[in-house]
């Protein structure tokens, strides 16, 4: 069991490394992707400076906290899009029969399938996340927590995407639904939860778990709370397991490239 995990980790790391090498073949494009993504994220600082000129407190957040929120959202997004880029186009892989080559390998199909590609701009997101942390105030404690939450959040976002994309084992045209779902997560994650009320707030901690991926971590970063940390950790484990479950359940219905649409 332990060797299997070790071997799987080794091959996953190798796969990500090779994918990164492929992206770095063209250094100029690679660098501009990273740099422009940092600038792209930074442009939203303007938005919040303007909004905070109206009120000094929006939804219980100060400007600094909103920036941290943005930074963590970018980290989360970056971790998921960098390490598991293909999780966001998994339905294409499923529909076009591209799981075949992973199915004949003695490794975990889902992990292999989603780690064959990296997105260079996602590296810019991660970088931006750390820049924000330095602006917010660096300490080894926050650095560690921030990184941890970035990874956990990334796993949550990836798991949700895997679940949504896996729907294409059962239904058609689920790629648009998955894309919308993923955007929804990002959109909510970049606004303070204090502006939402009642049912919506409940939704954000359940069906659209932005609350757990982003809002709770910000609370823990502002004021350490072990229970909240454990909630985030526990939720991550559950949703990741759920993603595997849904994917493998669907895999039994996988039809390789035999799924054709016949026209009358």
């Amino acid at each position: 069991m332990l060797t299997a995990v070790k071997n799987q980790t080794r091959i996953t790391a190798l796969s990500i490394k090779y994918a990164l090498m492929r992206e770095m073949l063209n250094k100029a494009t690679f660098t501009s992707n990273v740099v422009f993504m940092v600038l792209n994220n930074a442009s939203f600082i303007i938005q919040w400076v303007v909004l905070f000129s109206i009120r000094d407190n929006i939804g219980g957040y100060t400007l600094k906290q909103v920036l941290l929120l943005w930074g963590l959202a970018a980290m989360t997004y970056g971790v998921s899009r960098f390490f598991f880029a293909k999780a966001f186009s998994l339905s294409n892989i499923i529909n076009n029969g591209k799981l075949d080559s992973f199915l004949v390998q003695p490794k975990n199909v889902l992990i292999s399938a989603i780690t064959t590609d990296v997105s260079p701009s996602a590296l810019g997101d991660i970088l931006y996340g750390y820049i924000i942390l330095f602006i917010y105030g660096f300490s080894f404690g926050t650095f560690f927590l921030y990184t941890l939450f970035g990874i956990l959040g990334g796993l949550i976002v990836t798991a949700i995407s895997v679940i949504l994309n896996s729907l294409s084992f059962w239904f058609q045209k689920t790629d648009v639904i998955a894309e919308t779902g993923n955007n929804l997560m990002t959109n909510f994650a970049t606004y303070p939860d204090g502006i939402f009320k009642g049912a919506v707030k409940l939704l954000l901690y359940t069906l659209v778990p932005v609350g757990i991926a982003t809002y709770l971590p910000i609370q823990v970063l502002t004021e350490f709370n072990l229970v909240k940390l454990l909630i985030v950790l526990g939720f991550t484990i559950i949703i990741v397991l759920l993603a595997f479950l849904v994917f493998y359940k669907g895999l039994k219905r996988y039809s390789s490239s035999n799924l054709m649409i016949a026209r009358i």
């Binding site: 058609q172 039809s255 035999n258 799924l259 054709m260 649409i261 016949a262 026209r263 009358i264």
Partner: peptide, 9 residues
């Protein structure tokens, strides 16, 4: 067996 979706024009 495969289920093939039929699509009308």
């Amino acid at each position: 067996t495969f289920k093939v979706k039929l699509k009308e024009k």
